Structure formats: structure tokens, C-alpha cells
Amino acid sequence: MLRDRGAIKWTSMMLPEHLTQLKQDLLDVSKMEKPSLDEQQIEEIDILVSEAIALNRELKFKLFKEGVAEDLIGTVQYLNYEQHKLHLKDHHDQTVYITMNDIIGVAYND
């Protein structure tokens, strides 16, 4: 008499290496290219950051890191022109350093 394996025969067999490669491929597909900013957008970002420093207002930054856009909310504490970095205080009262080249958008956090 022939013994059937039941539902086991329909499960796929994948090696751990295949699973890690599939996960990496899904991450690579979701990555995007860094959008380029024109002179007017750079000027607007500079004006918003300057006003936020003067008025001590909270800003919402859209950052581009490793193919993914991230949001960061914080108050600008210091603008370091030599290193092209912003020093922020986030909601957890921790200092965060942002490279100016990573910024792709800024808006007031209302």
C-alpha cells in the first residue's frame, strides 16, 4: 500500500541562503534614487532652517539614506557650515547630526 505524505508534499523546500537572497532582493527593489534639488528648493530649505533657528520652531526633515526616504522631527540647535551638518534635538531630547546632503525636504512640524 502506498503511503501519502499529505500536506507535506505541497510545501516548498527552500534553503536559508535562498530566503536571505529573496529578502535582500525585496529590499533592493524598494530602494529609490536620490532626488536632485534645484537652486530654489535649496534656498527654501535654507530659509526654513534659518527661521526655525531664530524662532526655535520644530521642523520635519525628509532625509535620504541608503535608497530610502526617512522622516525626522526635531529642533535645530546649531548649523555647522564647515562640516555641512545640522545639530538637532529630537523628541527624546537626544542630539542628532544630519548631513546637509541627505536632506531632500523640510517643513514646519505643525
Rank of each mutant, 00 (worst) to 15 (best):
M14T: 01
Q40M: 08
E43Y: 07
Q83R: 13
E33S: 13
V29K: 13
H18A: 13
H84F: 00
S50L: 08
M1I: 04
I42Y: 00
L59E: 04
E33V: 03
Q41D: 06
H87R: 14
E82G: 01
R57V: 05
I53L: 13
K85Q: 15
R5C: 01
Y97A: 05
A52D: 03
I103H: 07
R3Q: 07
S30W: 07
R3K: 15
L15S: 14
E43W: 08
E66F: 02
D28N: 15
L26P: 01
P35A: 01
I98A: 06
Q83M: 13
I73L: 05
E66H: 08
Q41P: 00
I45M: 10
V49A: 02
A107K: 15
Q24R: 12
N109G: 02
N80A: 07
G6D: 08
D28W: 03
E44V: 08
L19M: 09
G67S: 04
P35T: 03
E43V: 02
M100I: 04
Q40T: 10
D102H: 12
V29G: 05
M14L: 15
D25H: 06
T11N: 09
K9R: 13
L19G: 04
M14C: 01
L63H: 02
Q24P: 00
Y81G: 02
N56A: 12
R57M: 07
K31D: 01
M32N: 04
E82L: 09
E82T: 07
E33F: 06
M13K: 15
Q21F: 09
M100T: 06
D38F: 04
Q41M: 08
Q40P: 00
D71T: 09
A54V: 06
I98C: 05
D25T: 09
M100S: 05
H87V: 13
V68G: 00
Q24D: 10
Q83E: 12
A69K: 10
G6S: 03
D38R: 03
E17C: 06
A69C: 14
L59Q: 01
S36P: 01
E82S: 09
E51G: 05
L22E: 11
I103E: 01
A107Q: 15
L48I: 02
Y108E: 14
V96T: 03
I42V: 10
E66P: 00
N56D: 14
L86R: 02
K31N: 04
V76G: 05
E43Q: 11
S50A: 10
G74I: 02
I73C: 08
F61I: 00
M100H: 02
L15D: 09
L79G: 02
